[in-house]
Design a protein around this nucleic acid. Sequence first.
DNA 1: GAAGCACCTGTAGG
DNA 2: ACCTACAGGTGCT
Length: 353
Amino acid sequence: MKSVGRKTDKIRLKMVKLVWESMKISPLELSLAKVLRCGQAFRWKNINDVWSCSIGSKVLFLRQHGDTIDYATYPYDSKALELVSDYFNLDIKVQELYTQWSRDDPVFQKTAVGFEGVRMLRQNPWENLISFICSSNNNVKRISQMCDNLTVHFGELIMEHEGVEYYTFPTPQALSKDDVESKLRDLSFGYRAKYIHKTAQMVASQNQDLFKIRDLPYEEAHAELIKFVGVGPKVADCICLMSMDKHDAIPVDTHVYQIAKRDYKLSSKGDAVTPKTYELIRKFFVNKWGPYAGWAQSVMFAADLKDLENGLNQTNSSPKKQNKRPKVEVKEEIQLEVNLVRADRRKRVRTTA
DNA sequence: GAAGCACCTGTAGG
DNA sequence: ACCTACAGGTGCT
């Protein structure tokens, strides 16, 4: 008993035992592989068919087989099912919507084959805002690397599991510090570095609660979001759709523009999406697909996306390429680890007392 | 108001 | 090997 030392605690910390629970859900209602790889969320990892990502201060683990999804969180959360249900919008039945869209739209019916189980996530507005500032003129692979880098360099360590470190998504305060723009430049964020820094400063200085935008109607929410630097009409629509409960928001990007021209024969003058054509296309699809038009759009987008299931962030053996903090910051990391060990020790004392 | 252009970076395709 | 075009666009003139 005397010999229980820090070394043992460290090992204990790294050998996290996950408590798994299960739920029944059809892959036609939710397909993890598609939803987590279709360009809505950019930080999900897949390691040996287990999906994992930090959400808030916890890490959520998921695996899908047949009609079952297993889930676990770290630290343990007795309300994990509520977290999963909220994050995946499970109150909304997507199979029924597919039936409707297919009945109303032959193009959808044809395109959606093989792309069942695609649904909109209900993400954190702040992370969603920053993620989609990263998305401008960019590809999914680099957006994912950038979002991961944000957590590694500006977030806080939650845990290490099977050689992978999980960090929280950084707060507005963490991204408003003076040196953030140059640090992001060094991390090859390009011109988005300034956008992120400035938007973080706007949110932090006003102590703004982005969740409140959920209560606004679509037009007002969109107008509110477009005020942030690096947020134009398209990104604002992404945030409306993916974290603000605006289910009929249609982000008109290059893909949707191509779909509109190719599959729906919408004529247009130039090659660029002008604000006018943007509105035209948006209203066309809202009229066609109804109150959940944004959800239908995401199915069409997923079907059009080339790098869906391209093995991004996927590891089958020991992960090596993971973003890790530079060696210089190791001191800080050890300090964090010690703090976690202490917290862990307190917890165990309390539960056994 | 709207059209044209610069903007960071990485990569697939010629 | 080089060059070009494009990737879930935005801001400025």
